[in-house]
């Protein structure tokens, strides 16, 4: 199975919501209703920047039942990233047309949970926007713990507090405030689930804290949107069709294949779901495994690669495609 079909949308509104974060509202190009989604869903946005095609996942933020428009938030990661978020910030304005995928949810709240603890760091707030909307309308018990660098850099602080009141807890790094995770997790009733989204160190810390407090792994959920790290160009050979494709420095293998019309499987595009796992037939370079999916023995074997995130340093790789 490969990604769902694409839909053309137009940017209807752009708002600077925090120092480096913009909110984009997208409507169907013909104003047709968009698909409904569930709390925690994301879409991927296709960007054409010069001769480059990129595709980044962004969480949907509005009300899941509002089909008139989708809202996403984009953090400008600046020069150190491969440029997808920079492109959104600098080249996309009201009226710009974009292509997006249908919504996909790899981070749904567990419906039978007695309580939901949401842990967000920085831009990691985005999947929780729709999730809280949904949990609130289901009258589910939830609380948010949201770490921001400062009030300037944290998106939606005021909005969330006015909408959800005391269920929102904000921690400001510039004032030395930390999420007291041990205290929070140490005092919850049975059947509580924790969800975390944010930078990798924060996710790792949260998962570890939960584990050390004896939380079963089934009660702990995380989502991380990591863009594929850039590198040097290299060649991908397709064993079945005999084609050869160049992966540019700022592209993932998956993006290069898509640019050349090759239909490859994917879901999350973030190295987490396992859908894009591809067999390696031959490789004369060093594989940089950037996913969170393959096990250590699988990596060492060199027989598999997650093409949404991983690349080789130089040379060529032959894939079982």
């Amino acid at each position: 199975m490969s990604g769902s079909r694409l839909r053309r949308v137009r940017v209807a509104e752009v708002e600077q919501v925090a120092a480096r974060i913009k909110r984009f509202r997208l409507v169907d190009i013909d104003n047709a209703p968009l698909s409904e989604f569930s709390g925690g869903s994301h879409i991927s946005v296709v960007m054409h920047s010069g001769d480059r095609m990129m595709r980044n996942p962004y969480s949907l933020m509005g009300s899941p039942s509002d089909t008139s428009s989708y809202q996403i938030s984009v953090l400008n990661c600046g020069a150190d990233s491969r440029g997808g978020s920079k492109f959104m910030h600098e080249n996309v304005a009201v009226g710009t047309e974009l292509e997006i995928s249908e919504p996909l949810n790899l981070f749904p709240p567990v419906k039978l949970a007695k309580k939901h603890i949401l842990i967000a760091g920085g831009i990691g707030i985005t999947p929780f926007m729709s999730m809280m909307n949904e949990l609130d309308s289901l009258k589910s018990n939830f609380e948010l713990h949201y770490g921001v660098r400062s009030l300037d850099e944290g998106a939606y602080c005021k909005y969330l507090q006015s909408r959800y009141g005391s269920r929102i807890n904000i921690y400001r790094q510039d004032q030395g405030q930390m999420i007291p995770l041990e205290t929070i997790l140490g005092n919850q009733r049975l059947g509580t689930h924790m969800y975390v989204c944010g930078p990798k160190p924060m996710i790792d810390w949260s998962l570890q804290t939960a584990e050390l407090l004896g939380w079963p792994s089934e009660n702990v959920h995380s989502e991380q949107f990591s863009a594929p790290p850039p590198g040097k160009p290299f060649t991908v050979k397709l064993a079945k069709s005999g084609r050869e494709i160049t992966v540019k420095g700022h592209q993932s293998i998956l993006e290069a294949l898509e640019e050349h019309g090759v239909d490859a499987p994917f879901l999350c595009r973030g190295g987490a779901c396992g859908q894009c796992e591809t067999g390696v037939v031959a490789c004369d370079g060093y594989i940089e495994h950037n996913d969170h999916f393959l096990t250590e023995p699988e990596r060492v074997s060199g027989k598999k690669i997650m093409i949404c995130m991983s690349r080789i340093q130089t040379g060529s790789i032959t894939l079982d495609l």
């Binding site: 997790l185 140490g186 005092n187 919850q188 009733r189 049975l190 509580t192 407090l213 004896g214 939380w215 079963p216 009660n219």
Partner: peptide
């Protein structure tokens, strides 16, 4: 026992 139990129970 479960009625009164907190998370951290296995």
């Amino acid at each position: 026992m479960l009625e009164a139990a907190p998370m951290g129970l296995r």
